[in-house]
Design a binder for these strands. Structure first.
Lengths: 219, 219, 219, 219
DNA sequence: GATGAATGAGTTTTCATTCAT
DNA sequence: AATGAATGAAAACTCATTCAT
């Protein structure tokens, strides 16, 4: 009872270490020291360092999928675009450590592919995002672009803003950013009224092009 | 004398290893084997594995600054925006290994800040980019936004596209992407003709807001 | 559990190695082999080879301070002088390995000054010796000399004898040496009876002169 | 002609390094940096690090033998004792770096025994010192002690003083020390006038006892 | 005389992991 | 659940020395 939740204490310490020193720059000894737990305890709760990181990833993905991929069910394209920008930025700021950790992990975990539970969460998250992007691509109010470009236009600015922010280089306040980036994303995506009908079929064609998928990395 | 340029051979081998196995996944032995140089030679030219990575970063930054930050001297805002998008994507595709390596390194090198030569290159690169963004922010044809948001709108989509591409998840061809993302970035940034004069002063004010800068990380 | 006191076993093995091959001539592998412990165990208990050496120094200093700096509480100057000579030689012979190691280390450990635990032991040992020397310097039966010269006269011969002995160049038996060097040290120090009163104040003055102290080296 | 005497420059740099970091703590690279010479030059003039150290030792021994072992040809025992103390301290202070280096080397160079030129210098120095000590031991004015104890009484205090001085812990000025230690050494050695004749034969016997000699170390 | 790239065996050190208590 | 001693393979790094120029 002295330590109420060793497992969570270890997870928190690991996250701090990973953020401060990177995954590979962090040793079990670092986590041991920061958490105050013993080596034995860490191995009692987790299968090793990688398992710890994967647990954090799973937690992060679950949280992200629930918050950042939620759009109004029957919203207009503009509402959907704004909801994605808002959701992305809001979640990242509310879960800053996890978000930073996931940005770090993006290029670092080819082994993640072996963890089926992680794949499940990842697939689900990615698919729900892709479904939304596809629906946007099919809208007659939206430029006829492939979903990957639509993703880049809607989420790219938000991600770039968060990335700069993570490096301490963003000057704007989150509210400003949400408003401005949401508005701009919609301007980038929307089709001028007079052009809407003519191009709609092309949009459908572009949207149907299959996405190549080489590997499952974290995030 | 048999090997004319050992230093460069080592650098090339290291880059290949880092991309294939990650920084920490790469051992000096790996680099030794791939380069054909001896352990001693590697340490003769570099102070260690980290120094090698920093040398690669410096090379990448130098190359990037020369190619990706070049805009027409007296171009219109639209031309400038398109040039930045084109430059970013073109350089990244032409220097794919270096670009991938730099994306990897973004969060991994807190020690980079101590390398004065790296700081110099970084400062220069960053400053020339910032100068361009500031000039955009001051234009009466552009929405009155802070430079960090302008950066996010102009380069965020391109970076997101490249990131997806690096993960094998981009479906669109580079030429399509350059055209579409350049056009969209301009749409996101431009001010409707009838609003231009009224808001120009505000744009100037926003553009003058100083960017907080906490640390110099890679990229 | 099979090995009850791994730490001490490692220390003992290290001492043997250092004496046989010198500090830098000894590799961790040598200590590993001689102690039977694993590399990991050595690093579990000590931070490295140097830390091992410092631990030995600390042990030696502790032992030396307890044995070699003990003089009769209310002894005459002569008794005190003889006790210091006897204590020095007796301890050195009874703890020959440690003593030899400490002689070796005298000039080799500029880093020792950073180890606070070592400093504590050193300070204590040195201070108790200095206190005795100062009390001698103040005695009216003793030549009016600064404490550093008194130290040289009392302990210098004993140390020279031990040093020659460590090199295998001493011919005399310890008992002879203790007797002869104790007697001679007293003769060197004592003030002829007829001169005692006249010079006493000067002795006090000399004894009060502060000792410059630049650094704390071993011993 | 730009560099007048590379060999000597290297020797000087090596001495500084050895004093600052110890023999084994000094790498050829250290000497290269401090001397400004190239690796190749160092190996052009010396056979390696050890050869460098031996060259310094030989230089030191030669210098020491000429200065510290010179006593008046037909001097009284007292004059001889004072001359040895004076010579030892004077030489050490005039050649401080070399003297410090030789104190360091005392325990560190079992390999020195293979260098015949060094042995020659050492033998000569040691023998001339021993001859003087033997002559003292035979004098009827001197206590009947073995030469090793006589050496300890005559030179021990001077060496102890120099050692403390080398550590920055000596308070007395050299002139004071020379006078006081010379006087005291003589008091420690001299036989009271009334005891001189009776004990002379014993002194002769003691002086004839052979000195065990196990190894030839430096100094 | 002078240079510095090249070598590679040997050394120190790290660290994930196991396991008896 | 918790502990921390023990492990040893694998890694980083050192450094005296050689040699072509």
């Amino acid at each position: 009872m002295a330590r109420p939740n060793t497992r969570q204490i270890i997870l928190d310490a690991a996250l701090e270490c990973f953020l401060a020193q990177g995954f590979t720059g962090t040793s079990i000894a670092d986590i041991r020291v920061r958490s105050g737990a013993s080596t034995g305890s860490i191995y009692h709760f987790f299968d090793g360092k990688e398992d710890l990181a994967l647990a954090l990833c799973a937690e992060g993905l679950r949280s992200w999928a629930q918050a950042a991929c939620v759009v109004p069910a029957n919203g207009t394209p503009e509402q959907i675009v704004r909801a994605m920008v808002t959701g992305t930025i809001t979640w990242a700021l509310a879960n800053e450590p996890l978000h930073r950790f996931m940005m770090q992990s993006e290029f670092l975990a080819p082994t993640a592919a072996q963890r089926s539970d992680l794949i499940d969460v990842m697939m689900e998250a990615r698919l729900s995002q892709e479904r939304i992007l596809r629906s946007l691509a099919l809208s007659s109010q939206v430029r006829p672009l492939a979903p990957d470009l639509i993703r880049a236009l809607v989420l790219g600015p938000a991600e770039a803003y968060l990335r700069e922010r993570a490096h301490g280089r963003a000057a704007s306040l989150p509210e400003e950013a949400i408003a401005a980036l949401g508005e701009a994303a919609w301007q980038a995506l929307r089709l001028p009224d007079d052009a809407q009908h003519a191009l709609a079929p092309a949009a459908a064609a572009a949207g149907a092009r299959p996405v190549r998928r080489r590997s499952f990395d974290l995030v």
